[in-house]
Computed example of a mutant assay.
Amino acid sequence: MMMSSARGKPRSLPYARLADPASYALPQVVRTSRLLLRPTAVDDAAALAEARSESYAELFPWFHPVMGTPDQENDAQWQSERLAQSAEAARRRERLSYFAWAWGACVGAVDLVPLWRRGQFRLSYWVRSSAAGQGYGAEAVNAMIRTAFEVLDARLVTTGHAAPNAASARLAQKLGFRQIAQQPLGCELPYGLLVDGIACAIEDIALLPPLNVSWG
């Protein structure tokens, strides 16, 4: 099937892919100049508990639907159960979660939720409080966008944030995302406050800031 573009030139419409998601080899290491990113593992429970407990107040407004109580987030056993679920989701190729490590500590995480048939990945991330403002979030997200396109054959990577989340808006703009939608009352903040949701997308790694990334 063909359709005309705005300039009158026909372009081919993409088709869904039939590849088995299990045929994609997930990188066990993604390296940048400052970061090592690797799949989440149960052994990381104590490091995760430390990072999430430290950052609870900053993360809660944006991630409250999927967060535990402060005591739970600080509990390595509770985190290990969550990490076991994360590992199983990765095994089923339903959600790919990577921790970012620097100076021997977990400084944040990036998740990719794939729609394999479409070649589309939905991205989310968080950065621990003591690592904020140092560019780790942008570096980790940049690396995982490149992983999606260069290793996992992505056609499109999307992300989203609540309209008041200025830090996420700045990061999306810095990395070359374009806004594709604004949903009125699309996000619920703590205590029931409803705000607009912003959806963004990137279709070409040429739009990303330069970054040396390697995979192992």
Rank of each mutant, 00 (worst) to 15 (best):
S53F: 07
G8F: 11
E50R: 05
R146C: 03
V110T: 08
A76L: 06
R93V: 12
Q28H: 07
A87Y: 00
R93P: 03
M3G: 00
V195Y: 06
I198D: 04
S5N: 06
F121V: 14
G137V: 04
L13A: 11
L185K: 13
V151F: 01
S97Q: 11
S124I: 08
F177G: 01
L123N: 11
I198F: 05
S97F: 01
R146Q: 11
P209W: 10
A138H: 03
G104V: 15
V151I: 10
S80I: 08
A162V: 13
L189M: 07
R155K: 01
P61V: 07
F99M: 10
A51N: 05
I202P: 03
L152W: 04
V195R: 12
D75Y: 07
L18D: 01
S53E: 12
R52I: 15
D204R: 10
P21N: 02
A90V: 08
L207G: 00
D196A: 11
L207A: 09
A166K: 01
R118M: 14
A166C: 03
S23R: 11
L211G: 05
Y98V: 14
A138I: 14
I180Y: 00
L207Y: 04
G197I: 05
F60N: 09
R7E: 05
K174H: 12
S124M: 09
L36M: 11
P210F: 13
V127R: 04
R122G: 09
M3F: 01
G135D: 07
L123M: 15
Y15H: 06
S214E: 15
C106K: 06
W126S: 13
E73T: 10
A6Y: 01
R178Y: 10
A162S: 10
Q79C: 10
L194G: 00
F177N: 03
D43I: 13
L26V: 15
Q183I: 15
M67R: 01
L175S: 09
A46W: 02
R117C: 13
E88S: 14
L35K: 09
P70E: 10
M2D: 06
A57H: 05
A181Y: 03
L123C: 14
W101Q: 15
A46Y: 00
L193C: 04
S129F: 02
G104M: 15
C106H: 07
L83S: 11
I145T: 10
F177M: 14
A105P: 01
P209R: 11
R118E: 15
L37A: 04
R146F: 05
V127A: 07
S124K: 09
D43C: 03
L207I: 09
P114A: 09
N212S: 11
